[in-house]
Design a protein around this nucleic acid. Structure first.
Length: 645
RNA sequence: GCCGUUGUAGCUCAGUGGUAGAGCACUUCCUUGGUAAGGAAGAGGUCGUGAGUUCAAUUCUCAUCAACGGCUCCA
C-alpha cells in the first residue's frame, strides 16, 4: 500500500500501481470523467500512469492550466494522426501546446496543406477523436528508438533523440499514430469534443531562417462545443478592437501604396491625438528638467560609424544617398544627434544631469513581412530623450525616469504590462556586450533596486541587454495577441566613450558621462496603435479628436446650435455641429459610431431655457444641463486629463 | 526576407471566359423629425499592376506590388 496525500491535506491509502484516474474513480465517476492529467509530487503525469510510491497528488482538469496544456498537447498528437492518415509519409518535428491551442510542425515533402485543406483535416480529427483511442505511454531504450527512426528515415526525430539520454525516452501512441514524446497526455482522444484548426503557415526548422521551412498547422480544441463558440466570439470581439480597423473607421490614419509600405499618413483626427500626446510629453518633461531639441532626419555615415550602429544595424537602415561625395543615412535613432548637441559646448559637472528631449523622427527599414499596422512601421516618431549624468546621479535619474513611466501609465490607465529587465551574459562580454564587467553588474543592480523600491512589477531576462548596457522594456500585447515593446528605458556606458563625451569633474579632470536612453511613450505610431485598442476607440475626452458634437433637433435650432458651438470653441473644446438634414435618431447613431464623447441635443426646450441635453457616448442621455455648467465640467475633464471612466 | 492567403466603387463584400453588382457612404430633391438607421432620384469602377494563353481575360497562367495569417527579425 502507498500513501497518497491530497491538496486539502487528506491522506489515503491505495495499492501500489494505482493510477490517478483510478483514484479519481474511487472518489466519484463524475470527477473521473473530467480528469485530464495529474500532478504527482509536483510533476505533471498521465492520469493513467501507475503510481508506485507515496506521493502528493493533484488531479488536473480543464480548469487547471496544466490540464489545458496537456489537453492541447494531446490535441496536437490527434492532429498529427489525422495528418498522417491523409498525407502518408509526412515527417513531424515538434507539436507543443500554446497559451491558447497548439501547433505541429511537419515536413510534407512536395505536398502542401493550404487553408482549404483544414476542413478535411478537422473532419478527420473529429472522426478519430470519437474513437476514444487511449494515449499509451511506452518507455524505450535509446538504441531502439534510434533504430526505429533510422529505418523510417525520419531525420527530425533523430535530431531530437540526439539531445536525449537513454532511460528518459518515451513514446506515445494513440490509434495508428506513434510519436516520440515526453508527455504527458490525456487518457483518451474522446475528451476532445470541439476542434478548430485556425491557420497554416511556414515555420523555419528550429526557428533558424537558414534552415528548411516546415509547414505549421495551428489549432485549438475544447472539451465541449460551447467553449469553442465562446472562444470564436471572443476572437471576433478582439477583431473589432484591432487598431487597424478602428484607425480606418475613426479616420485616424491611412496608408497608400504610392507613399510606401510602413509609412503612415496621419489624418486630421490622428494628428490631434499626436498633438495632445506631445503636449503631455512637453509639459511633463519641462517639469522634470528636460530641454527640448530638434535634429535633422539625416546624417553622414561617419556619425553612425562613431556610434557603432554601422555596420551592425545597417540592414535595418534605409540605404544611404550619395551627396557631394558623402554618404547620408536616414536616421534610425536619435541618440547620436543628441550626443552631438551635448558635445557642442563644454560641460562641467555643474551642468549635469543634462537632459535632452525630442519627438524624433526615425526611419527603419523593417523587413517587409514584419510591418504591422501602426505597431511596426518604417517611419516613426519617438518620445525620445537622453540623460547625461554622473555615476553618483545615476540612481536618482533612473528612478525619476521610472516614476515618469508610472505617472504616464496612471494617466492612460495602463495596467496590463510587463517590465522586462534585460541583462548581459558574462560569457559574451567583449562580443555581444561592451567589456565592462563591473559597470554591468553595478548598473544592473542599481536598476533592479529602483524597480524594487518603486514596487514596479518586472521580470529579469538574461542575455537580452543592449550592447551598451542593461535595458528595461515595457511589453504589451495587441488585441490579437501579438507582443510589442511599448516603451524602452536603457542604460548606456558605451556611447559616451565612443563619442568622446566628457565633462569636467570637481577635481578639474575630464570624465565620461553615463547616458540613460528613455522613451516612456514609445513612438506615436505604436503608442496610438496601442491606445486605440486599449480604449477600443473610445478615447478619453482630452484625447478624443472630436470632443463634442452638437445635434440640433431640426434646422430651426441651427442658430442656437452654432451659438453653443461658439461658446465651447472659445473654451478650447473641439466641437462640431451636425448640420445635416437628418432625424435626431440618425444623428445620434452616427455620432455614437464615431465614438464622440459628448453629444449635445438642442431643440425647442433647450433653446427657450438656454440649456443643453447632454448625452455621453456609450452611456446615453445624462439629462439637461446649463451651458456654463457643461463647459466647466468638460474643461475640467480635459485639463485634468480625466480617464472618463 | 521565407511559407501561405487575398486584392472588384470611398468602406464592407457578392459575381462572371463575352469589358460588372449589393448595402453603407457621397450628390440632389422631398421631409423639419426629441435620444442608435425617414423617403426618392443620381453620380461613382481600365475588377492592384505588367505580360502570356485565347476570337475574346476582371475571370485561366506567369511575374510584380501591396495587404493579411504565421516564421525569422526587432539597440
Amino acid at each position: 500500500m502507498i500513501n497518497i496525500s491530497f491538496p486539502d491535506g487528506a491522506v489515503r491509502q491505495y495499492e501500489s500501481g494505482v493510477s490517478a484516474l483510478d483514484i479519481a474513480k474511487s472518489i466519484s465517476e463524475g470527477l473521473a470523467r473530467k480528469v485530464l492529467a495529474a500532478s504527482v509530487n509536483g510533476q505533471v503525469w498521465d492520469a493513467t500512469r501507475p503510481i508506485t510510491e507515496d506521493a502528493s497528488l493533484k488531479l488536473l482538469t480543464w480548469t487547471d492550466p496544466e490540464g489545458q496544456d496537456t489537453f492541447w498537447h494531446s490535441s496536437a498528437h490527434l492532429m498529427a494522426e489525422a495528418v498522417e492518415s491523409l498525407y502518408p509519409g509526412v515527417k513531424f518535428w515538434v507539436g507543443p501546446a500554446l497559451d491558447k491551442g497548439f501547433y505541429y510542425d511537419m515536413d510534407l515533402g512536395d505536398r502542401k496543406i493550404t487553408e482549404e485543406d483544414l476542413a478535411a483535416l478537422e473532419k478527420k480529427m473529429t472522426e478519430l477523436a470519437r474513437q476514444s483511442n487511449r494515449y499509451i505511454r511506452k518507455e524505450m531504450p535509446k538504441s531502439e528508438a534510434v533504430a526505429y527512426f533510422t529505418e523510417k528515415g525520419d531525420e527530425y526525430k533523430l535530431d531530437l533523440l540526439q539531445n536525449l539520454n537513454d532511460g528518459e525516452i518515451t513514446f506515445y501512441s494513440q490509434g495508428a499514430f506513434t510519436d516520440l514524446c515526453r508527455g504527458p497526455h490525456i487518457p483518451d482522444t474522446g475528451f476532445i469534443k470541439a476542434i478548430k484548426l485556425t491557420n497554416v503557415s511556414g515555420a523555419y526548422w528550429k526557428g533558424d531562417e537558414k534552415n528548411k521551412m516546415l509547414t505549421r498547422v495551428y489549432g485549438v480544441t475544447f472539451p465541449n462545443q460551447k467553449e469553442l463558440d465562446e472562444y470564436t466570439t471572443m476572437l471576433e470581439e478582439a477583431k473589432k478592437r484591432d487598431h487597424r480597423k478602428l484607425g480606418k473607421e475613426l479616420s485616424i490614419f491611412t496608408m497608400d501604396e504610392d507613399i510606401g509600405p510602413g509609412l503612415i499618413l496621419w489624418m486630421p483626427n490622428g494628428s490631434i491625438i499626436i498633438e495632445e500626446l506631445e503636449k503631455l510629453a512637453k509639459e511633463t518633461e519641462e517639469e522634470a528638467g528636460y530641454k527640448r531639441v530638434v535634429t535633422p532626419h539625416i546624417a553622414k555615415e561617419n556619425l553612425y560609424l562613431t556610434s557603432g550602429h554601422l555596420p551592425y544595424y545597417q540592414d535595418s537602415m534605409f540605404p544611404p544617398m550619395e551627396l557631394d561625395g558623402a554618404k547620408y543615412y536616414l536616421k534610425a535613432m536619435n541618440c547620436p544627434h543628441h550626443h552631438k548637441i551635448f558635445d557642442a559646448e563644454q560641460k562641467s559637472y555643474k551642468d549635469l544631469p543634462y537632459r535632452l528631449a525630442e519627438y524624433g523622427t526615425c526611419y527603419r527599414y523593417e523587413q517587409s513581412g514584419e510591418l504591422f499596422g501602426l505597431m511596426r512601421v518604417r517611419c516613426l516618431h519617438m518620445n525620445d530623450a537622453h540623460i547625461y549624468c554622473t555615476k553618483e546621479q545615476f540612481a536618482a535619474e533612473f528612478k525619476a525616469v521610472n516614476d515618469m513611466y508610472l505617472k504616464y501609465f496612471e494617466i492612460f490607465g495602463i495596467e496590463k504590462y510587463v517590465m522586462r529587465l534585460s541583462l548581459h551574459e558574462p560569457s559574451k562580454l567583449g562580443q555581444k556586450y561592451i567589456n565592462e564587467p563591473e559597470l554591468w553588474l553595478e548598473t544592473e543592480e542599481m536598476v533592479r533596486q529602483v524597480l524594487k523600491e518603486s514596487g514596479t512589477p518586472f521580470v529579469e531576462v538574461p542575455d537580452e541587454g543592449a550592447f551598451y548596457g542593461p535595458k528595461i522594456d515595457v511589453q504589451i500585447w495587441s488585441t490579437i495577441g501579438r507582443e510589442f515593446t511599448l516603451a524602452t528605458n536603457q542604460v548606456d556606458f558605451a556611447q559616451g566613450r565612443r563619442f568622446n563625451l566628457s565633462y569636467t569633474n570637481k577635481d578639474n579632470a575630464p570624465e565620461t558621462p553615463l547616458i540613460i536612453h528613455r522613451a516612456p511613450l514609445g513612438t506615436h505610431e505604436r503608442f496610438i496603435g496601442f491606445l486605440l485598442e486599449h480604449y477600443a476607440g473610445k478615447f478619453p475626452v482630452w484625447l478624443a479628436p472630436l470632443q463634442v458634437k452638437v445635434l440640433p433637433i431640426s434646422d430651426k435650432f441651427m442658430d442656437y446650435a452654432l451659438d453653443v458651438q461658439k461658446k465651447l470653441k472659445r473654451s478650447g473644446v473641439r466641437v462640431e455641429v451636425d448640420d445635416r438634414q437628418e432625424k435626431i435618431g440618425k444623428k445620434i447613431r452616427d455620432t455614437e459610431l464615431m465614438k464622440v464623447p459628448y453629444m449635445l441635443v438642442v431643440g425647442e426646450k433647450e433653446m427657450s431655457e438656454g440649456k443643453l441635453s447632454v448625452r455621453r457616448q456609450g452611456k446615453g442621455d445624462l439629462g439637461s444641463q446649463d451651458i456654463h455648467a457643461f463647459i466647466d465640467m468638460i474643461v475640467d475633464e480635459i485639463e485634468n486629463r480625466k480617464s472618463g471612466e
